[in-house]
Amino acid sequence: MNPSLTFKAGVHDVLPTVFGYIGVGLAFGIVAHTSHLSLLVVAGLSFIVYAGSAQFIITSMLLLHDPLSAIFISTFLVNSRMILMSTSLAQYFRHESLTRNLLIGSLVTDETFALAMNKQNKTNGKLSFAWQSAANVVAYLVWGIATIVGAVLGGLITNPERFGFDFALTAMFIGLVYLQLISDRHLGLSLQLMVMLFVALIYYFMIGIMSQNFALLVATVTGCLFGMEMKKCR
């Protein structure tokens, strides 16, 4: 990755992350197909919602016939990390127009955010609209196309459970939580491990007395409050 901030440099820099999009995108397409979603719904989720892990949640909640309000709240909770990422990334584009800020913001993902943070280490804290847009648009198109290809392939595979594809979602969250654990230097390893243990315990006890989605909400919010308290104690 060189310091160039042109559109072309953006396309070049985003290519290594594209493999991740293809892998998880294919998995999502296959999972969506086995959950009886049509190609049109898969395309709608990928191109309009465009939210990796949230798309898996939405798919499973549609399958369980959960109420719309619960689906919206879960989507907001899963994506609430975007508020934090966008808030951090936006600091680099304050000099750009509001329209350009909204354009960048509407396509930010975990990966393009991480890529941008990596890039600004090499450009003395500078990012450009052209570079960020190139990374965002390539990621957006690759994700959408990979999910649709996955959904088509899913139709050719008669019994995808036999091949373990239903585990892709769980595996992705395990991967994401591990990468978060080792890369968030702001919070650090020991604090994050304590918070993880706390969340797991709360979730374990809560699913006996409330719905899984509500338990997820309670475990997340109390986990954040617990983390804030533990950070104060250090």
């Binding site: 939580v177 475990a219 997340t220």
Partner: peptide, 17 residues
Amino acid sequence: FLSFVPITIMTALCCQS
């Protein structure tokens, strides 16, 4: 508060499975 959301929500999602 938000800085703890990624680790807590991803942990809870793993627990769900």
